[in-house]
């Protein structure tokens, strides 16, 4: 990606999420792909959006295992819209959630939804992020 700006990613998870393995694994995938990663960890949706704004990131990656990804996702994207960063930021989400939440998360504005499995390989996650940032 010579001449291009490095993609900057914010990696975060809901305030109370206790599982960290997914977050760290995907964060290191982005680093390996030459992207700049801001590892925020656990935070409230508002704080995640504020940080995304301050750090001027291209991508916000969310890892979630427990709790409701739909309730969290809706709050997150609403704040993002309020702060005017929803349009020019790519939001992706991965982790453990039921299949029926996948379309809901996509509809609300996550451009990449990655439950574990064949759809969540390193290549596919990177491609999704690169594609979304180009747009």
């Amino acid at each position: 990606m010579k001449g291009q700006k490095r993609i900057k990613v914010l990696m975060a998870m809901p305030a109370l999420e206790s599982h960290t393995r997914g977050l760290f694994t995907v964060a290191s995938m982005f680093r390996d792909a030459g992207m700049e990663v801001v590892l925020l960890g656990n935070e409230l949706p508002e704080r995640i959006v504020d940080t995304a704004l301050q750090e001027a990131v291209d991508v916000v990656g969310i890892s979630t295992y427990c709790g409701s990804p739909v309730v969290f996702g809706r709050d997150l994207l609403k704040y993002a819209e309020d702060k005017g960063i929803k349009k020019n930021t790519a939001f992706i989400i991965g982790g453990i959630f039921p299949p029926k939440d996948e379309p809901t998360l996509k509809e609300m504005g996550f451009c990449g939804v990655f439950p574990p499995g064949p759809g969540a390989t390193r290549e596919k996650i990177i491609a999704c992020v690169e594609g979304a940032v180009k747009k």
């Binding site: 305030a15 109370l16 409230l44 427990c66 709790g67 409701s68 969290f72 709050d75």
Partner: peptide, 22 residues
């Protein structure tokens, strides 16, 4: 549930979406 594990009350903002889930 996750708020109780992480020591948050059910009415704290962090608990939203997590009360009585896991």
């Amino acid at each position: 549930d996750l708020p109780s594990v992480q020591m948050f009350d059910s009415d704290e903002p962090e608990s939203r979406g997590n009360v009585a889930v896991v």
